[in-house]
Simulated scan of single mutants.
Amino acid sequence: MRASRLLTILMTLQSRELVSAAELARTCQVSVRSIYRDIDSLSALGIPVYSEQGVNGGYRLLDGYRTQLNGFSKQEVETLLMLGLTGPAKELGLAPAMSEARLKLMAAIPAELRSHAERFQSCFLLDSPGWFTEGETVNHLPELFTAAWQKNQIEFDYQSWRGNSHRVVNPLGMVLKAGAWYLVAQPQDRTLDQARTYRVGRIRELKILNQNFELQVPFDLPAYWQESTRQMEAELYPNTAIIKLTAKGLRMLPGLSPPYVRQQTHIAETDDTGWTTVTLPSGNTEQALFEMLRFGPEVQVIQPEALRQAMSNVIGMMRGYYGEDESPSSK
Rank of each mutant, 00 (worst) to 15 (best):
L61W: 06
L62W: 01
L62H: 03
L62Y: 03
Y65L: 01
L69K: 01
S73I: 07
K74P: 05
K74F: 01
K74G: 02
Q75H: 09
E76T: 05
E76S: 10
V77C: 07
E78L: 02
L80N: 02
G87Y: 13
A89G: 12
E91Q: 15
E91P: 00
E91C: 06
L92A: 04
L92G: 00
G93Y: 08
A95V: 02
A97L: 13
M98R: 06
M98S: 06
E100C: 04
A101K: 02
R102V: 08
L103W: 00
K104C: 06
K104A: 13
K104H: 12
K104L: 14
L105V: 03
M106Y: 04
A108E: 04
A111F: 08
E112A: 09
E112Y: 10
R119G: 01
R119C: 00
F120G: 01
Q121H: 04
Q121Y: 05
S122M: 05
F124V: 15
L125D: 07
L126F: 15
L126A: 14
F132K: 12
T133Q: 14
E134F: 12
G135W: 02
E136D: 14
T137K: 15
V138E: 05
V138D: 02
V138Q: 03
V138S: 13
L141C: 10
P142Y: 13
F145N: 03
F145L: 11
F145A: 07
F145G: 02
T146A: 15
A148M: 05
W149V: 11
Q150T: 14
N152A: 07
